[in-house]
Design a protein around this nucleic acid. Structure first.
Length: 263
DNA sequence: ATCTATTCCTGGCTGC
DNA sequence: TGCAGCCAGGAATAGA
């Protein structure tokens, strides 16, 4: 479940290998991951130079001489540098510096070529790490529903997924069902502060490895050891000792402390 | 317009 | 040891 900190870690770990490098050839193996056609895509990026690697929310954009390569890791996508292709390799880019693989067991991810920055990239809300408080607060006020589904909505703020939504609400002591509109400016300020802090701390720990997430060098993250509520149903709350509860909100498992996070 | 449910996909886990 | 059945979840899509 790569979210902003994991995607940021991946971007940082591939950048030094690929910037300024030329794609000698590429191969694509999954029509589900690469919907623009396997051969068409391979042809489009052959002999093209990589100019930049960017992230917005959970999405990665590789700027090329000609066009862009859009990558979303979905649930189980991995970008791997100089690893051996395997059963789940969905794309392979041979550069003049080495080989970049896209592996993805469940194929919820995407690797697509576009001539211009795709609409999906611009449709996202502001990135969770660069949004200002005023912007965050203003956006909060324009939505009706509960906070948890809103935090997962990428057009609201880009980059937050299920893990960090739960961790951030715990840190800010706000109930996941609290209504966005009713959040006071003071509490919004607290949410905003914890949003930035939790994500920054997670980036410093190279993300959370819950199932099998690894960066481009195959390294696991360490932030899962610092999770307070996510995946900790029944464990004592680190703040008050009450058992962490798991409920379902908007079809998503939601973990919180029933004592610290009051409705 | 807004919210909710369903779909994709497969490894891993549970229980028989 | 094997296997059916269920679960996880990001985001698009369909339905209410």
């Amino acid at each position: 479940m790569p979210e902003l900190p994991e995607v940021e870690t991946v971007v940082r770990s591939i950048s030094p290998h690929v910037l300024g490098r030329t794609i000698q050839y590429a191969q694509f193996f999954s029509p589900r991951v690469t919907r623009g056609g396997l051969d068409t895509t391979a042809k489009a990026i052959a002999q093209v130079t990589i100019r930049a690697v960017r992230r917005r929310g959970k999405q990665i954009l590789i700027d090329l001489d000609r066009g862009v390569l859009y990558i979303h890791l979905g649930m189980t996508g991995k970008l791997l540098w100089n690893e051996t292709p395997g059963k789940y390799t969905r794309a392979l880019l041979v550069l003049d510096s080495g080989t970049l693989l896209y592996d993805d067991v469940r194929q919820f991810g995407r690797v697509e070529f576009f001539k211009n920055v795709p609409e999906i990239f611009d449709r996202l809300g502001p990135d969770a790490m660069s949004i200002t408080f005023d912007e965050f607060y203003a956006r909060l006020k324009t939505h009706r529903g509960a906070l948890k589904p809103l935090l997962l909505n990428q057009t609201f703020v880009a980059g937050i997924g299920n893990i960090y939504a739960d961790e951030l609400l715990f840190a800010a002591r706000i109930h996941p069902r609290a209504l966005a509109r009713r959040i006071s400016r003071v509490r919004a300020k607290s949410m905003y502060k914890h949003l930035t802090e939790v994500l920054q701390l997670a980036i410093e720990h190279r993300g959370s490895s819950i199932s099998d997430y690894v960066d481009a060098a195959g390294e696991r993250g360490a932030f899962q050891q610092l999770h307070n509520v996510y995946g900790r149903e029944g464990h004592p709350c680190p703040r008050c000792g009450a058992p962490i509860r798991r409920i379902v909100i908007g079809q998503r498992g939601t973990h919180y402390c029933p004592r610290c996070q009051r409705a």
